[in-house]
Amino acid sequence: MMAFQQVEAFRGGENLIRVVGHRGARGVLPENSLIGFDFSLSIGVPLLEFDVVLTADDVPVITHNHRLHSASFRDGNGLFLTGEEPKVSSLTYEQIRQFDIGRLDGHSAYGQRFPDQAQIDDVRVPRLLDLLDLVDDPKYGDAHLMLELKSDPDLAHDALYRENFVRRVLGDVRGKGLSSRAVLHSFDWNLLAECQRQAPDMPSSYLTQLPDNADDVGEDSSKSVCPDFRGRRDEIPNLVKQAGGSLWCPYFADVTPENVTRAKELGLCVVVWTVNEHEDIGRMIDLGVDAIVSDYPGRVQRQLSESGFRWQ
């Protein structure tokens, strides 16, 4: 299998575990926002994980849910959305950029998960191109992107949808000359097969989550598009390798000494998501994963430092 230089940016080593800013630094700044990405980069965390969805006019934008998230989207009057949340795919980019994503509704169950997130006005959903422009700045020349293609459950079995989605994303990445600094990342293994078909020069990162784990409050579930690995936890690294994966990105609660060891024997880079609590960060350090994805990258930096580890 081809060796990809992009993978090495995420691979750990002796006394080295990488830190990946999840949606920028969701714990402290608006998620999937340019200000959050810039913050993560500025504190020495050059690895970014984020979500891409297509608008009605085929613009790749960076947002997690397939519908405008009522807990974080405010209308032109500064009010959080109520009622049925419109799908991103039903709105043009110009329509989506009318909404402000700089605050969280503290009365919502989702907002209560992130009490330390700063509240900022006039923050807009960025295009993928906007983030690519940011990391193209020479001062961020070491930045690498873990670009999650969010598979729409309503269209997951539509081959034309998959082809167009991947083509639009690759058009942006290649247009900026940044394919050597990007990893294509998804729960949808069919979508990753399309990525490999269109971009054999870019590595695939296979997200997984066992179905018995609870979904995160206020977020789209991956379970409708992710393969069901019930009872096959320690086989997953073999399946990722067989599918052509270079990185395995499991939910942190699903990793064991056995499957981490097996993944590394296969040459896979093991990147665990999303690890925020000190006890869980410590367990991931003890397991020797390659990289830790976190909403609080500074928290992981500090714990790594106190444990005698580097992150760069």
Rank of each mutant, 00 (worst) to 15 (best):
F10P: 09
E194F: 06
Q117W: 06
T55I: 05
D201F: 07
L145W: 14
S205M: 11
F50R: 01
G175T: 04
R181Q: 05
H69A: 02
R67D: 03
E306W: 09
D137P: 06
Y251G: 05
V61Q: 05
L266Q: 05
R181H: 13
G282R: 14
V125P: 04
S72Y: 15
F4P: 03
L47F: 03
C249V: 14
P257S: 00
S108P: 14
L170P: 00
S222R: 05
R302W: 10
G141L: 08
N213L: 15
L54M: 12
G13W: 03
S205C: 14
Q117Y: 09
C249Y: 03
S70D: 13
S186M: 04
I236F: 15
F39A: 12
Q112R: 15
K241E: 01
L192A: 11
V260K: 06
K150P: 10
I285M: 13
L41D: 04
R97S: 10
L16K: 13
Q198F: 01
P203Q: 03
M146E: 14
Y161V: 13
V53D: 07
P257C: 00
V28F: 14
V240N: 08
F37E: 09
A143N: 04
K139T: 03
P115T: 03
F309G: 00
I101Y: 15
L178G: 02
E306T: 09
S40P: 02
V289F: 10
A56F: 12
R11Q: 06
Y140D: 01
A263D: 02
T55F: 07
L129E: 11
D100Q: 02
F37R: 08
V88N: 02
D295T: 11
D290G: 05
F80S: 08
L147W: 12
P237V: 02
I281S: 08
R74E: 11
S222V: 12
F4K: 04
F99R: 05
P237F: 12
E85T: 10
A143C: 12
L210G: 08
Y93D: 03
E84P: 01
L129Q: 13
E94T: 00
L48H: 10
D137H: 14
A193T: 05
D75V: 04
V123G: 12
D280E: 05
G298P: 02
G245D: 02
L149N: 07
A9M: 12
H22D: 03
G308T: 02
L178Q: 05
L34G: 06
R18L: 00
F165V: 13
S224W: 03
G267Q: 10
V45L: 07
R181A: 03
V217R: 07
P250D: 04
R162Y: 01
R18K: 10
P115Y: 07
A109H: 06
F37A: 13
Q119I: 03
N213S: 05
D136P: 04
A156H: 09
R97K: 15
R262E: 06
R174A: 02
C249N: 15
T92C: 10
E14F: 01
R233V: 08
V173D: 08
S40Q: 02
A159K: 12
I62W: 07
A253V: 08
L104W: 09
G78M: 10
K223R: 15
R124P: 00
D286R: 15
D58V: 04
V20E: 11
H66P: 00
A71M: 06
F99W: 08
V300R: 08
G141N: 14
S72R: 13
Y206R: 11
A199Y: 11
V166I: 14
A199T: 14
A56G: 06
Y251H: 14
L155N: 11
L128I: 08
D280S: 11
